[in-house]
Design a protein around this nucleic acid. Structure first.
Lengths: 345, 345
DNA sequence: ATTGGCACTCTATTCTGACGAGTGCTAATC
DNA sequence: GATTAGCACTCGTCAGAATAGAGTGCCAAT
């Protein structure tokens, strides 16, 4: 996909120090500083020549005639792909969190904490997609008559998730009628996939007692919904407000769009979704994500695995000018941590 | 509580037009404009004299020597308490929403929509506290054995709320053991309050079969938790991002604190809580709420009732300089709407 | 008690010039 | 041929000065 421009070692090295420097203090970097900082005996004039080349290649740009250079999106791209040296985390940092998070019973709570962890370690916003269930197996079903023609259906799936919904029937069913229907479904189908149950019930509809038909149909319909919902991706965000502290986010309209997106979830999910099928970490820099609203933002993601199978994605969102060398290992290690915590349950 | 300063009709009228004008366009209001706008034949010089009085009383202030006046918190207070003429909504506006929201089965969904409604009608952030249940009645209980020593407990309370939790037992219980326990609880206690069940089970503990004792204890413990959670207040916000469009919110640090508070919920809940026991609408202007972070914000709330009993609060939060005459009726009518929708279910 | 008039204050805007940072280009150098 | 020094030039920023406009406070007249 990328036609990496071919640039020599010196240019690469200069680009690297330029971006590192820019990430550090957010100011355009001039030739003098670069010549001094780079540690490779070159005069500012030479640096200027190199910079002109890099600018032609679209890797850096000058905000105005007599300012230093700042990286472009393409520059960042080249940087993270080829030039970056990540700083590994100190080994025991994650161990501490592992111990702390280990005791949690509730997976939702775990997700929540991990999102918090991401946000606090990076001082940006942490995103954790809920793990999707590979299959939806019926554990148990229960019908409870409510007042009038309403019936509460409780579905236990995958050993611990409980789903429930109210359905409206044509007539009021008695407790024992509903009990029969539930017994039938439980004895026939417990432990099987909702999808296959659906097919089977519909297929053998004629064998079902007339007065139960409607309740069965509604149950199937509910099962559909449950499969639907459990396949609908969702995520948890924390630390959005961290983003407000960055100077890059000063534009209110932009900021608003970003927060809107984080709340609406749709666009962000789309980005996370791109990452779920990727093997490893993904980094979306600036408009690469394809959304105008995230112009000044980058997203760093990593899929996480339960028993070697990818079940979700997590990551952070922050300003394009972020310390990639620190953020990348954090996201990486956190994904492994979450995976292992979910597996051990 | 308030020692309303005594000011004559003319001063009141001038204060009223001043605040109306300031709310309209956010600029300090000068004597000339006021003299023209007020419609009461007075010269700018007279107005200036009155303004000086009002300033002494702490009702208005001048941002600097030669600017017009803007209202202080006390000024707003006097305004909303005594001077405000609300604009009633056009009658059919709410009827439309009532029809639209009427079909919703799920009370959570309803709350969500109402919060959205508040936010979109006022272009500020809408808050709806979840209705608290007056009592928690057991409808049905169910135990499901999971792998190992874990048991899934499902509690249906108040006719349609389903709560569930995993408990850890000393040993693995069989399906039929659990069934017996559930049968016992259901036949004895369905329809009764969790609180009284708790007491009764503990009281008659010796009558319970030995091998069931632990499961009963855990069930009681869970019931405690459920009562606990159902008493823990919570709310739904929508349209937070609307707040970003106001010039008053330009200060990032303030904005950040505000968003933090909306997400953390604690402080906002505290404010809403003050309002739940009040008879009617409450308005917190600026620092009146007692929180520094909401300095430039006002909160307008109204309790809502189900069958004449207050079960929750809703409202909006926005800049102090808001169109109270429009916001107040919206909040008022929405509270009535939500109440009637919840009652009719 | 109200009003007109006037001096005064403060803000916002515009313009200016000086300064510094940094570039691009060219000619000299290695 | 690559590198470098030198120099003219551009642009942004800052401080200061000038100006206009809005609005006040106060005093004297009504």
């Amino acid at each position: 996909m990328s036609n990496d421009p071919i640039i020599n070692d010196r240019a690469q090295s200069l680009l690297k120090t330029l971006i590192e420097r820019y990430i550090q203090d957010g100011q355009p970097v001039g030739s003098r500083i670069l010549s001094r900082e780079s540690g490779m005996n070159v005069s500012p004039a030479t640096v200027r020549n190199v910079m002109a080349d890099l600018e032609d290649l679209g890797l850096v740009k000058a905000p105005h005639t007599s300012a230093g250079r700042i990286p472009t999106v393409r520059g960042y791209r080249l940087f993270v792909d080829n030039l970056l040296t990540v700083r590994p985390l100190r080994g025991n940092v994650m161990e501490r969190f592992r111990d702390e998070l280990h005791r949690l019973d509730d997976p939702e709570e775990l997700i929540d904490r991990v999102s918090n962890l991401l946000s606090s370690m990076t001082r940006m916003a942490g995103l954790v997609m809920l793990p999707r269930a590979g299959s939806v197996q019926l554990k148990h079903i229960e019908f409870l008559p409510l007042s009038g023609d309403r019936v509460l259906v409780i579905l236990v799936v995958n050993d611990q998730q409980v789903q429930n919904r109210i359905i409206h029937t044509d007539r009021a069913y008695t407790q024992s009628e509903l009990q029969q229907a539930a017994n039938y479904l439980n004895s026939e189908f417990a432990g099987r996939e909702l999808d296959s149950i659906r097919a089977r019930v519909l297929q053998h509809m004629e064998e079902i007692r007339d007065d139960m038909k409607q309740i069965m149909q509604l149950a199937v319909q509910l099962a559909d919904e449950v499969v639907q919902t459990s396949q609908t991706a969702d995520y948890v965000v924390h630390g959005e407000t961290n983003l407000m502290s960055y100077a890059e986010m000063a534009d209110m309209e932009r900021l608003r769009q970003l927060f809107e997106a984080l709340k609406t979830k749709q666009d962000i999910l789309h980005i996370l979704d791109k990452s779920i099928h990727a093997e490893g970490m993904q980094i979306f820099i600036g408009e690469e994500s394809g959304y105008e609203a995230f112009g000044e933002c980058s997203v760093v993601t990593s899929p996480y695995r339960v028993q070697d199978e990818v079940v979700g994605v997590l990551g952070v969102i922050g300003p394009t000018r972020m310390a990639y060398d620190r953020v990348i290992p954090v996201v990486d290690v956190t994904a492994k941590l979450l995976g292992s915590l979910l597996t051990s349950e």
